[in-house]
Every structure is written in C-alpha cells, then in structure tokens.
Design a protein around this nucleic acid. Structure first.
Lengths: 185, 185
DNA sequence: GGTCCCATGTAAACCGTTACATGATTAC
DNA sequence: GTAATCATGTAACGGTTTACATGGGACC
C-alpha cells in the first residue's frame, strides 16, 4: 500500500524538507497517527526520486556537511492528489496490545487487573496533558490554526483528534476500574 | 515482541481450540484490537508447540478430516501470565491512514475534504451500529457478562471500548465537518 | 575537548499480507 | 451435485524495527 510514500509526498507538498526534517515531523504531532524510522525514510526517498515524484538539491551546512533538500514534482503532486481523493474502507482491526490483555481479563486475578488498569490510566492521563500542551502552543503561536484556510489546520485537527481519542480512553478506563475495584472477591 | 504468541496463549487459557477456531475469534469482537490471518497462525502454532507452550490432540471429524485441537501447557500458562502482568509503555503512534490524509487537508480543496469526511462519517456510523448489535446479542445471551467474574467480561469490555472509540471518532468527524462545511470559499 | 544534535546511509531480522495449494464436511 | 464452510499448510513479497556504521556542526 506504501502509505509512507504518501506521507512523504504530503509533507513535501507543504514545504521542501530533508529526510531528517521528515523524521522530526514523525516524532511530533503527526506521529500520533503515522510514523517511520530514518532507516525506512531514506530508502523511500531514493525510490521516490527514481520514480520521478520528488527531486533534491544539495545544500551545504557549515564547511562540508551535505544535506539533500527534497521538493515534490508535478508528477508527485498528481500522485498525492489521487491518494487524497480515494475513499478507502475503514480498517477492521486497530491493534492495541492493552485491549488484547483486557480481552483476557478472566485469566488475571483482581489485584493484577487493578494494577494493569491503574497504570494504563496514569500513562494515558499524562499523554492527554502532553497533547493539550502542544495544542496550547499551536493556538498561541497561530490563533488562526482553527480555521479551514490556515496552513496549520491539519496540524490542529490531528491534535484535537488525538486529545479526544485519549480522553475517551481515559473515561473508559476510569469507568472500568470502578467496576473492577468495586467487585468484592 | 511476538504479540500473536500471547494472543494464542490467552485464547487457549480459556478453552481448547483449533487454529481455525482462533481465526474465527480474530474475525469477531477480538478482531477490533488484534487479528492475524491463518497463514500467520499455523506457523506460530507449530513454533509454540516446539517451544512447549502448547500441545495438541488430533480429533477426527466425520470419516477422515483430522483437526489439531490445541491446549495450553503449564509452561504456556506461566509465559502468558508474565506477559499479562507486564506494564508496558503506551505506543507513541497508532497508525490511521485517514488521519494522515486529514493532516494534509490544506492540500485538498473544500469539496474534496467534505467528500472524504462525509464518507468516513458514514462508514464509522455503520460500524457503531454493527458493534452495538454485537453487544446486544452478548448481553441478551449472557446478562452476567457485565460483571468481573463472568467468563464473558473480557468480551464485554472489548465491545464497549470499541463502541466508545467509534462514537468518539463519529463526534469528532461531525464537529469537523461542520467547520469545513460552514467555511465559505 | 566533550556532548548533544544534525545528517545519511545499509543490513539483518521480524512481522504481516497475498497468493498458491489441497482436501473434507455440511446443508440445500 | 454443488456451494459454503471447515480445516491446514507453504511461498513470496512487502513493510517495519533494530542494529550496524559514519561523520559534521553547534554549544559549553
């Protein structure tokens, strides 16, 4: 399916970037919904260049450090738009190891289950706080990010979606913990 | 990380199963959070048998059809419990191709965005209905499923989590569609 | 001079999907 | 009899992670 291909084309449709810059994007907000290691990015950049969807210029940083700054080509833009328009089916499975453990809750004793759920609740709560901080920074730096015509609108949507996803998880964890906790052995 | 290994051990800790039975579980409620094709299941069963975590008996169906009915061993139970107790970090990324497209919304025109979001809303709404039907069947067949000591509690939790996950997605899609739709070009 | 970050690559191993392949049983 | 489902396997391919490998720049 080569989703990474489209992730790269999409990023380059916004501005020119090095492979290293892309890696940074995958570690930031975008990383909530897609990411790749540099060991996957660099070969994909090579392939996309060979296919004519992207091109690069070499920039010199300091004295000798060569970096490849990539741009999207017209063919690349056509390829990107074809993917953007395509209405795919929603996936049957969204893998979640914690929910797999939850499915096997009858193999745990009550104390183990409480420990597991409490820990998950803690981690997810921390994540909500981290994401809300990111959203605050974004809306302070660019208050127009919330409107469709801002270049930051995608960034804003991804953050709000991630926050609500995590908050929903937290609410469900709290509700479930109450049921587990109040069931006397 | 071999999560499939633990998925199989967890299923076998509930009752003895064939590889084919496991495949069916991955197509049912459990499949909301974990799944595998039969081409991945059968080699994993072979490996787990060699490692001594599971064993099988051959049952004859009808005249000649041989099926391998697997059971978990004591070593397998220890292995399963070690995994169940372990409090892993939550993943940084949950891959979602639709949200990747959303991040690139500034590369779309308004009409394209509305089409994409409407379609996603439709699909997710259908999924909520499907999941609610499954939950209804479960609670009608076994009203005790909602309590910790039911063997169906894991099943119940997975379904309620999946429903709330999809409902949260639907609410966010509706809210976002309104913003997109009301932004006059 | 040292540490952290910038910057790019390859190789091996692992995980997962699609395709190839076969045959029995059940229900109509 | 025939279609759907039960039942099990392998092979090839593609995507992803971990590890190996190297070197420059910026800041203290």
């Amino acid at each position: 399916m080569r989703v990474l291909k489209y992730a790269i084309l999409g990023l380059l449709d916004q501005r020119e970037l090095t492979g290293y810059d892309m890696k940074k994007h995958f570690e930031d907000s975008l990383g909530q919904f897609w990411s790749a290691k540099h060991s996957q990015i660099y070969p994909e950049l090579k392939r996309l260049t060979e296919e004519g969807f992207i091109e690069f210029d070499i920039h010199i940083q300091g004295k000798k450090l060569e970096k490849k700054v990539y741009q999207i080509t017209d063919a690349g833009k056509r390829e990107l738009h074809e993917w953007l328009r395509k209405k795919g089916p929603i996936p049957d499975t969204t893998k979640d190891e914690f929910m797999l453990k939850t499915f096997f809750i009858s193999s745990m004793d009550q104390k183990e289950a409480v420990g597991l759920f409490s820990h998950q609740l803690q981690e997810r709560t921390k994540k909500v706080e981290m994401l809300e901080q990111k959203l605050n920074i974004l809306t302070e730096e660019d208050p127009s990010a919330q409107s469709l015509h801002s270049t930051q609108f995608g960034h804003y949507l991804v953050l709000t979606r991630a926050i609500e996803r995590e908050k929903g998880y937290v609410r469900w964890l709290q509700k479930t913990l109450e049921v587990i906790d109040s069931s006397i052995v």
